[in-house]
């Protein structure tokens, strides 16, 4: 039982990070109907910038008060990734918006390769370690199986990750459902041309969507860095693929779907590793995606697509 609870917590933590990245995929897909393949690398950039800010603040300026350091790292990396999100849209998507559908896909993959190699060249290919910063936690339950003691512990780090994700999720849902920006985003999703005729600046709305997704990816990047303590230029690829899977599983275009999909993928991975074999955890995650899509082609919470005639 303790073992199960511990895995549940681990799964939710990992799932939160996937979910945050998945929101970026799902929002961009919702508004322009295309996948932003460079999004995983925006997440990677977010992690690197957080690390850089963290190290500069602690070693150069000698700031030791952790909340301030983390807050500044978060703000700076969100600013940078927002800029990258905007740049990706401007360079890889906007010039090709009138073009055939596959063209921006290719430019986005190009963007992804550029970002990866840019970081590899400037930061080196080796992993960057960061010693654990937030330690300790709350012991939830304790028991013994076959003479060995097993504790279920909710660490402070996990609390921060799950809590932050929850708060951001609520904030984002409110933003989309209540504010004028969210309304115009939904309007652009349904009929971009008509939204434009009603005075919505469609270009700006699409840019803002990329920026919002990228800012969330920065949050995920910082959390990933703190949780695992090692990052390299390649983390964006696998995390990106997983988050994309999460978005598709939940129903691409749906915000709660992305979060649900993220949590599910995280849980599947962790539980598979815990009870079966670690090597096959990705196989398990993708198999479940395949099975779900066979029976629910538009994902768990996605709306079936209606062809406009």
């Amino acid at each position: 039982m303790e073992y199960f609870v511990q895995q549940l917590i681990n799964g939710l933590t990992l799932g939160s990070i996937y979910g945050l990245i998945a929101i970026g995929y799902t929002m961009v897909y919702g508004i322009i109907g295309m996948i932003n393949f460079a999004h995983g690398d925006v997440f990677m950039i977010g992690a690197f910038i957080s690390l850089a800010v963290f190290l500069v603040l602690t070693t150069v300026f000698g700031v030791t008060f952790l909340p301030i350091v983390l807050f500044l790292a978060l703000v700076v990396s969100m600013l940078f990734t927002s800029f990258w999100g905007w740049t990706i849209e401007r360079l890889a998507y906007r010039p090709l918006r009138g073009s055939f559908r596959l063209a921006p896909l290719i430019t986005a993959i190009g963007m992804s390769i550029v970002l990866q190699n840019f970081v590899q060249v400037t930061q080196g290919a080796r992993v960057k370690p960061l010693p654990p910063q937030i330690q300790g936690g709350v012991e939830l339950m304790s028991g013994s199986v076959d003479g060995t003691t097993i504790n279920a512990q909710l660490s402070y780090m996990q609390m921060i990750i799950i809590g932050t994700t929850f708060v951001l999720m609520v904030a984002f849902s409110l933003l989309i459902s209540r504010t004028s920006l969210g309304r115009s985003q939904r309007a652009c999703e349904q009929d971009r041309k008509m939204a434009s005729l009603l005075g919505v600046n469609v270009d700006r709305t699409i840019s803002l969507t990329f920026i919002m997704g990228a800012a969330l990816a920065a949050v995920a990047g910082l959390m990933f860095m703190l949780l695992y303590g090692v990052i390299d230029f390649y983390i964006g690829f696998l995390a990106g693929v997983k988050a994309f899977t999460a978005a598709v599983l939940g129903g691409i275009g749906s915000l709660p779907g992305a979060m649900l999909g993220g949590l599910l993928i995280g849980l599947i991975e962790v539980f598979w590793s815990a009870y079966f074999t670690v090597e096959y955890k990705d196989v398990a995650a993708f198999s479940i995606l395949a099975i779900v899509l066979i029976f629910m082609p538009s994902g768990l919470l996605g709306k079936p697509e209606i062809e406009k005639v």
């Binding site: 504010t179 004028s180 920006l181 939904r186 349904q190 009929d191 939204a195 005075g199 709306k303």
Partner: peptide, 26 residues
């Protein structure tokens, strides 16, 4: 019309710019 949005929301989208300025761009 924006079929998936409510009747009221359809009318509010048309007032998007006034609302954006009033909300200090969200």
């Amino acid at each position: 019309l924006f079929g998936g949005m409510t009747v009221l929301e359809n009318l509010l989208v048309a007032q998007h710019n006034t609302l954006m300025v009033a909300s200090g761009y969200t």
